[in-house]
Computed example of a mutant assay.
Amino acid sequence: MFTGSIVALITPMDEKGHICRTSLKKLIDYHVINKTKAIVSIGTTGESATLSQEEHINVVMLTLELADQRIPIIAGTGANATTEAISLTKRFEKSGIAGCLSVTPYYNKPTQEGLYQHFKAISENTELPQILYNVPSRTGCDLLPETVSKLSKFNNIIGIKEATGDLSRINKIKQLVKNDFLLISGDDITALDFIQLGGHGVISVTANVAAKEIRKICEYALKGDFAKARSINKRLTLLHEALFIEPNPIPVKWLAKKIGLIKSDTLRLPMTPILHSTRLQLEKAIQYANL
């Protein structure tokens, strides 16, 4: 369940900023129909930074309810305080969650020893599978391969979402971990190359609006049929790029609304409505992708 195409699901809201149950159900059904391997609920794309902890928990639990065991749900449980990350993780014990995606502590810029102790403490306080999440462009710290290697020795730390976009990281990590340690791309633009170099899948933003295509790319790539994978990915290149012209998830929420997956592209401040120029780029991208 932790390989192939995993979607970093958006969190649909109504025009007043409340969680939209109807749109969430439609999104989940869309991914079940298109055979996405798993859903990450309340990661970066799910707007974890602007939800209260109570809302965070409620959305994950609602996603579980609406999924109704049709697709595995991975909960975003990262925090910049270790005690908060442990508390959030423990909240999902015995809930039916398949595992947790835990981002490196943001803003306070811990050392490598601090990162090690942070994830060690989480691991020792839960039985849930843990996927590390490294995204230095957002957090201000970088989980280095040597630290990943040390953390991989904990039985419930099963892999990493590597979102640096640095393809050299794959071999560096692979040399230091066991073969069953999962390497998952967190960068749609380089995800196919990531898999070709030995990765196991992608936690994808693009999959929110191109679930079938991302699933097929992963399936072909994991079977070694890179010609077919690249043929599909070529059509999505402009889309991968356009979805990050403005900070994620501004573009992907607008596009999900445009193609009818959600009712509203409402965001919470400090995220602001999409620019007209970005809309034009997205419209061009979906035409090129033939979605």
Rank of each mutant, 00 (worst) to 15 (best):
I19C: 06
S23P: 02
Y288A: 15
L222V: 09
L192I: 08
K16L: 14
E93Y: 10
S123P: 09
D225R: 02
L269C: 03
P129V: 06
A210C: 09
Q117K: 15
P251K: 06
A163L: 06
R215A: 12
L255V: 09
E113L: 13
L269H: 04
K216S: 12
A191T: 12
K120M: 07
Q287W: 09
L51A: 02
G201I: 00
G99V: 07
E246A: 12
P247R: 15
I195P: 00
S152I: 12
L261D: 10
D193P: 11
N208S: 02
P12T: 09
K16A: 14
E84V: 11
D166E: 13
T50L: 07
H240N: 14
A163E: 07
K257H: 09
T36Y: 00
M1E: 15
F194R: 05
D187A: 13
L197Y: 11
S137G: 15
S204F: 11
I262Q: 00
T190N: 07
T147G: 07
C100S: 08
L132C: 02
S87N: 15
E246G: 08
L167I: 13
L275D: 13
W254Y: 04
E246L: 10
G260A: 05
N108E: 05
L238W: 09
E213W: 02
I173D: 01
A242C: 08
S185G: 03
F2N: 10
K26S: 10
V135L: 01
T77G: 04
T45H: 07
K90F: 11
R138T: 08
L183S: 10
D29M: 11
V103T: 10
C20F: 15
L144V: 14
D225H: 03
N125S: 15
K172E: 15
H18V: 11
G199I: 06
I33C: 13
K172T: 13
G46I: 02
N58D: 14
G114V: 02
L183Y: 11
